[in-house]
């Protein structure tokens, strides 16, 4: 790897929480993460997009929950005893927003170094890849590092915030 590339990728160096969706590995920077919980009872909210599953009560705080599979247009799967919710915080102009993300299975907290990171490949067509930070190769697996603040559009965020 060239030094430039190293410089470019070193931006993304840090600790990531890895998890699975459809047997694929994804990573979220731990700075964004507030807490990881097992899936509790979810209160459904009407008139919301399908990926918004509802809200949960986390120690007296109402937090909206979204299903990442649905957000990524992956086939829906019934929740099992490995399904977990990762609570993240997103900074907007109007302040911090807490959102719960439903994932298939949380894996571990990894230190990902710059030499393990590659830039997001271009797929030749114009795809919406702005929520991907980079790709990391860890232990023969490819981990997609997500920019979690880009997962939702501003409008969506606003909607969700209103819900909360």
């Amino acid at each position: 790897m060239s030094k430039d590339a190293m410089l470019e990728t070193s931006v993304f160096e840090g600790k990531y929480l890895t998890f699975n969706l459809m047997d694929e590995f994804y990573g979220i920077n731990v700075d964004r993460i507030l807490q990881i919980i097992a899936i509790p009872d979810i209160t459904k909210i009407p008139k919301t997009p399908p990926f918004v599953k509802g809200v949960i009560n986390l120690r007296g705080k109402i937090i909206p929950v979204i299903d990442l599979r649905l957000r990524f247009k992956l086939p829906e799967q019934e929740y099992d005893d490995r399904t977990s919710i990762v609570i993240i915080k997103i900074k907007t102009e109007k302040g911090e927003v807490f959102i719960g993300i439903i994932v298939d299975k949380v894996r571990e907290v990894l230190d990902i170094h710059a030499n393990e990171i590659e830039k997001t490949p271009t797929f030749g067509v114009e795809l919406d890849t702005q929520f991907i930070l980079a790709m990391a190769k860890v232990k023969n697996n490819v981990v997609t590092l997500l920019d979690i603040s880009k997962i939702l559009t501003d409008i969506e965020l606003t909607q969700i915030k209103n819900v909360a």
Binding site: L17, V30, I33, A38, V106, E108
Partner: peptide
Amino acid sequence: LLALNAAV
């Protein structure tokens, strides 16, 4: 989960 939270 607790261990992960601790790691976080």
